[in-house]
């Protein structure tokens, strides 16, 4: 099994593992952020360039460094490979540039967007971007489109990660949407606003890293940080039925699939669970969902309150790998 050193941490991974996945096995700050790569979707990745890393040593047989920064989600590890992510100023600088490019056409409408508070691009820009834009030209704009009666497409916010296209390709028997045009004119489209009405089409809301695809049944009802995420399940014939309910009081405002630490869906859920079952009585509640203490969603303290009710004040960070502080690595 090849051994790879990432930011000074050595790990042995099966052959064929990408640098990104090897870094995720180490965990902590050295994991490159990813906007387009999605471990559940085959062939995803390589589009957004946020996961760029520097390979300082190719392998034991060929120790030359790679000439350019490489996308870690697409580069497979080799034995003896040495990778620099946050220890390389070049990588951090490149990432800042990538964030700036991603934000060129992305509108600053976080106050309006339903994704705000759980948006990958928001987190990425906060951590790696610059506070001001240098872009002076007109941003490309589109009118929001309804694809079906349950999903809203805001093409303005799309960053062309292709996740929803891969999802439609791999999860559903027939693909109803894709990318039209090319380059700067590229856009997600259903071809003459055809409705996407597959049983699993709602999952494209969950895989979308930004607010381009949002739930119309949840549209503008509440900001995510005013809702309480609750783990729940129900007997469902089409999917696993395991979900997170986003509740306000006894009202179920939104249903979404459960996600892993890296924001990837654990198991895809069907549209019946997602859009139709908005009664608390439809669900068997398991308890509060784990939200990172650093997330704005944790501001409503629902998790803490629930835990305190049970008498044991604790934060369950078991899913989260031990964080490595930047100074520790340097």
């Amino acid at each position: 099994m090849p051994k790879v050193i990432i930011d000074g941490f050595e790990i042995e991974v099966p052959a064929g593992t990408t640098i990104l996945n090897a870094a995720r096995q180490i965990g902590g700050d050295l994991v490159p952020p990813a906007m387009c790569y999605y471990s559940k979707l085959k062939d995803s990745g390589g589009k957004c360039r946020t996961c760029l890393v520097k390979v300082t040593k190719g392998s034991n047989t060929d120790p030359r460094p790679m000439p350019k920064l490489v996308a870690s989600c697409r580069t497979v590890v080799a034995d003896g490979m040495e990778v620099a992510n946050i220890t390389s100023p070049e990588v951090l600088d490149a990432r800042k540039g990538v964030v700036e490019f991603l934000l060129i056409n992305h509108p600053l409408d976080c106050p309006v967007c339903d994704q705000a508070g759980e948006c990958d691009l928001q987190d990425l820009a906060f951590e790696h971007g610059s506070p001001k834009t240098r872009y002076e030209f007109e941003r490309r704009t589109f009118e929001p489109i309804d694809i079906g009666d349950k999903i809203k497409l805001h093409m303005n916010r799309c960053i062309m990660c292709f996740r929803c296209v891969f999802l439609a390709d791999q999860l559903t028997p027939e693909r109803l949407h894709g990318i039209m045009n090319r380059g700067d004119h590229a856009e997600i489209s259903t071809y003459i606003e055809k409705a996407v009405d597959n049983d699993f089409s709602g999952n494209m809301i969950d895989v979308c890293p930004v607010g381009a695809l949002t739930d119309r049944t949840f549209r503008f009802t509440s900001r995510v940080w005013f809702t309480n995420p609750v783990l729940a399940h129900r007997q469902c014939n089409t999917c696993c039925g395991k979900t997170i309910l986003w509740m306000k009081g006894d009202e179920v405002l939104r249903v979404s699939a459960r996600t892993t630490f890296y924001g990837e869906v654990e198991e895809f859920i069907c549209n019946t669970c997602r859009f139709e079952k908005k009664n608390a009585a439809d669900w068997i509640m398991e308890g509060p969902a784990d939200i990172s203490r650093h997330s704005v969603i944790a501001q409503n303290h629902s998790h803490t309150m629930q835990v305190l009710k049970n008498g044991v004040p604790q934060y369950d960070d078991s899913q989260k790998p031990t964080p490595k502080v930047k100074s520790e690595i340097e």
Partner: peptide, 22 residues
């Protein structure tokens, strides 16, 4: 006002509530 909810989030007294509409 676009009902983004940041004032309600920042409010230490939890005095602000809002309901958004399209």
């Amino acid at each position: 006002c676009t009902a983004c909810g940041l004032c309600a989030l920042a409010c230490p007294a939890e005095a602000i509530t809002m309901l958004a509409a399209e």
